[in-house]
Amino acid sequence: MSFVEAIAAKPVQKNRNERKLTIAKALNEAIAQEMRRDKNVFLMGEDIGILGAVWGYTGGLLAEFGEERVRDTPISETAFIGAAVGAANLGMRPIVELMFVDFYGVCMDAIYNLAAKSSYHSAGTFKAPMVLTTAVGGGYSDSTQHSQCLYATFAHLPGMKVVMPSNAYDAKGMMTSAIRDDNPVVFMMHKNLQGMGFLGTIQGAIVDVPEDSYTVPLGKANVARDGKDVTIVGLGMTVHQGLEAAKALEKEGVSAEVVDLRSLAPLDRDTICRSVQKTGRLIVVDDDYLSYGVTAEIIATVTERDIQALKCSPKRIAFPDIPVPFARPMEQHCLPNIQKIVAAARSMM
């Protein structure tokens, strides 16, 4: 890239101080801006009012927008997620909070049979523009029912978009896009990236976020780091592990490219394949369960399109096919980590 091209490619920067935000704060800002812009946008879910949501992204919204548009609900996910579908059918743009992704079992019909099929079986007439927010991920000893990711479970079911940002910049832009989207969007938030006082946060997720409203398109992956020897594909937390692994590999003379999927549905297959065409090696990292999951889908995508692009067998690092155990030694053993990615890359060189 020439100097002139590099200047042209850079987004226009306003003369302003860098402002680093957590994902939680960035989401809050996106939602507030959209609520000011469009009176049909409203929030409902458990503890989103005075508490500001368990995952910290709705603070202050009750004070600004009032109880009519920031609605604490009873613990009735079947009712309020179903209600989001009906409200969306009549022109509202609800953002509904399903605190932990593990809880979807009590309300899945509202998600996959009502929201996700609304357009299809009404030939696009009953639209369901709604955002379903939910937190994913373990690693902090929250055991079997509060540590899952379940990306593949959602991404497998047609009719809804499934996305997760890995940093605050993407979080704000993707939330803005999600709210404006006319389709149901499952918006996942990784707990280890969210920026909560009660839980550690990967520092790489806290980045500069412009104050003005902007969008980051859904369905587009991001090459988080350029490289030429191996492609590491991840999303959310595993993007940061991939970036750290890439730094370690660089010291060994291995140049790793890191692809942040950002969106599972739609899946940006082109960006993945383009990267593997360049590097010839593929590692997919996923903190969701191994079998029938994201890792298999990515590898199938690459091999179906051009198996010759691969110089060696692809590798996958994912959570084994067991429930998430509580005790630290067991859980940490099962999760993806930097060392596992580095070891996998080394074995491919």
């Binding site: 009519e68 409200a87 509202m92 509202a110």
Partner: peptide
């Protein structure tokens, strides 16, 4: 799906009221 039409109708009523 039996009984699952309840939520959307409640939400539609909410939309009418809010708007």
């Amino acid at each position: 799906i039996i009984g699952q039409n309840m939520g959307p109708a409640v939400g539609a009523a909410l939309a009418r009221k809010m708007r």
